[in-house]
Computed example of a mutant assay.
Amino acid sequence: MRILLITSMYPSAQKKYSGIFVKNQFECIQRLITPDEDIAIFFMRRKITGPIGSITKHLLSFFRFIPFLFKKYDVVHLHSFFPLIFSAWIYKVFHPKTKLVVTFHGMDANIQVNKKNEKLLRFFSKKIDFTIPVGKEVAKNVTKKLKLPIGKILPVGVNPSIFYPEPKQKIYDYLFVGSFFEVKGIDILYQSIKDLNKDIRFCIVGNGEKYKKLFLQLINDGFTLELKEDQTHEQLRTLYNQSKFLVLPSRSEGFATVIVEAMYCGIPVLTSNIPQFKEQITENENGFTFPLETPEKLTALLGNLMDISPSEYQRLSANAVASFKDISLDTVCTELLKIYRK
């Protein structure tokens, strides 16, 4: 059996940890396959660009893919539906017996498929043989918008040999990990920090010029805040364990891997109350949510949790550790191999 992974999300010199979960899956499957099986990967070269540059890199990626049209694979697995489905559709024209598997990561089904293009994308999606949404809410959109049956709901997986509890001193009260995009709620978090006591300790991990400048200004104004970029998984594990809570006030998500990573380290999580997070957060058990339509309630929540008792925090931490034991990286990749072989 020959398998080809195709992804628009993969680490690069400029975006070192973009789509690292795809790289982790690829390397894990390489370890698990038998000698008569083979897996290859094709990824788009990621750069930080504007709208024109983004279109250009997608076009260049398509031309780079042309040689793969003349190679025979038994299974082609897309990580993210749009716009990779166009290349995969052409591949299936050349190789109709090849099985096409698509992992829907969230934004591709939740936002990129919309009223303007869903009929067109529904046509191209007819070539798909097996769908893998990363969460229940993503699955609903795959069915509703593309009229596709769900093969299996399967998150990307987290490596428990990298993410685990460590007896670290808590030097941060709150940690944010993610790109500085408003879909991630970075503007909500920024406003909350501005409205809180300057002594509350924040660590912000990510990048984006606009909010980097705004956070640096907060530091200059005396707020207790650290900015970090390009953290390795091992560095992230340390940061999770040095923090009391992870904060993720997103407006849209798939099945947020950073939440699972944090919980593997025993860190409770604060999120917006969007449906996707309700799959991961059980209120007052492994974390807390705030209403997205009233972001000032996040500010109140961040302030109130400063007075949490040690025993109550330990209860939340223990519940976090117990939350996602069934979606380790090896478990997910073993399941993917079963899907390919079937």
Rank of each mutant, 00 (worst) to 15 (best):
S192M: 00
D221A: 08
L227I: 10
D187P: 07
K136H: 12
Q169G: 13
F255R: 10
H105Q: 11
D36N: 11
S54I: 05
W89Q: 03
K152M: 15
K184F: 07
E293C: 08
P67T: 01
Y190P: 06
E166D: 13
G53T: 05
I200K: 11
K92N: 05
A88H: 08
L196A: 00
Y10P: 14
V158Y: 08
S243L: 05
I171L: 03
S161L: 15
I219F: 10
R201P: 09
P275I: 00
T98W: 07
D326N: 13
T257D: 04
L214E: 13
N110V: 00
F223Q: 01
G50A: 02
K212V: 13
R122W: 11
K278F: 04
L32T: 11
N117L: 06
T103K: 05
V102S: 12
N110D: 06
C203P: 07
T238G: 10
P35F: 00
D330I: 11
L302A: 05
Y211C: 08
M107Q: 12
L246S: 11
K342D: 13
T56A: 13
K99Q: 09
Q25C: 02
E283T: 06
K147F: 08
K342I: 13
F43W: 08
R64V: 14
D330C: 08
K116Y: 11
T334V: 02
E137H: 15
S317I: 10
K126R: 15
T331G: 14
T282K: 14
K126A: 14
L292Y: 02
I274Q: 09
F21R: 04
H58T: 09
K152N: 09
S54P: 05
T34I: 05
F181M: 13
H58S: 07
H95W: 12
G206L: 01
A13W: 05
K145D: 04
K194E: 15
I153R: 04
N241Y: 01
L329N: 06
F104W: 07
L78S: 01
L59N: 03
N304H: 09
S317A: 06
E209V: 14
K147C: 13
F94N: 01
K170R: 12
I204E: 11
R31I: 02
L292S: 01
L292D: 01
N284S: 12
V75I: 15
V183S: 14
Y264E: 09
